[in-house]
Amino acid sequence: SLEELLKLARHALRHGEEIHVLDRVITDEHEIKRLIEELERLI
């Protein structure tokens, strides 16, 4: 769900981890922040 993805993204950002989204691995902090902003808009 989007909520789950948002939780994962926030966790990854906090802990400096990578996040796997739709067969992509996002490691860049700015990309993760952008993902979080997009998800928050959708929810």
Score class of each variant (00 low, 15 high):
E18Q: 11
I19R: 01
R41N: 08
D23C: 03
V21I: 14
H11I: 09
I26C: 03
L5P: 00
L42M: 12
R10M: 11
L22Y: 08
K7C: 05
I36H: 00
E3M: 07
K7Y: 06
D28P: 02
H11N: 11
E4V: 10
R24Y: 08
E17T: 13
R24L: 10
A9T: 03
I19H: 02
H30D: 13
T27K: 15
G16R: 09
E18V: 13
E17I: 14
I36G: 00
K7N: 11
I43M: 06
L39W: 06
L13V: 09
I19Q: 01
S1E: 14
L22E: 12
E4G: 07
E4A: 10
V21Y: 15
L42I: 10
H15N: 14
G16Y: 05
R34V: 11
E18F: 08
H15Q: 09
I43E: 01
K33E: 10
R41K: 12
I32Q: 03
E38R: 13
R14C: 05
V25W: 09
H30G: 14
L6W: 01
L6M: 04
I36W: 01
I32M: 07
R24D: 05
R14A: 15
A12N: 02
I36A: 01
E4T: 10
G16P: 03
R10I: 15
E40Q: 06
E31N: 06
E18D: 09
L13E: 06
H20A: 08
E38Y: 15
A12H: 03
V21T: 06
D28W: 04
L22N: 15
D23M: 03
E29N: 10
A12T: 00
L22T: 07
K7D: 09
L35A: 03
H30C: 07
E38P: 00
E3R: 06
H15E: 11
K33C: 04
E29D: 08
L8M: 11
E40N: 04
H30F: 12
I36S: 00
R34H: 12
L5V: 05
E38M: 15
R34G: 10
D28T: 13
L8Y: 07
V21D: 03
T27D: 07
I32H: 01
E4Q: 11
